[in-house]
């Protein structure tokens, strides 16, 4: 069930390219536990974020400069639909459910 451990992906990105906008749903062929690369990147960043109010959308963008805002937004929407993350102080701050 739980995907153990602090999966901290050190720094931000490295890979450029792969500019396809992830389609939500559909037959998932994601690399890790059913998430796309973008989704797991976003999730890992949120998981790794220490502050109680959660990671802001702005913060996400600056951590993932290679992704454009709509891709990040989609990932966030997806993760929140799945229950992996939830919004905190406002709709722009997110925390992971399996953090703590």
């Amino acid at each position: 069930n739980k995907s153990s451990g602090p999966l901290i992906t050190g720094n931000s990105v490295g890979a450029s390219g792969m500019g396809d906008v992830g389609s939500l749903g559909g037959s998932a062929s994601g690399p890790t536990n059913g998430l796309t690369l973008h989704q797991s990147q976003v999730l890992n960043l949120i998981k790794a974020y220490p502050k109680p109010e959660g990671l802001s959308f702005q913060e996400l963008r600056s951590q993932l400069p290679s992704l454009n805002a709509s891709v990040i937004k989609q990932a966030v929407d997806f993760l929140s639909n799945e229950g992996h993350i939830y919004s905190t102080v406002d709709d722009e701050h997110f925390k992971s459910t399996d953090a703590e």
Partner: peptide, 20 residues
């Protein structure tokens, strides 16, 4: 703050449902 707790509870619920 109450809102955050609600969001969290809802999220955990979604997560649980998906793994049910």
């Amino acid at each position: 703050l109450e809102r955050i707790e609600r969001n969290k509870a809802a999220a955990l619920l979604r997560l649980a449902n998906r793994h049910a």
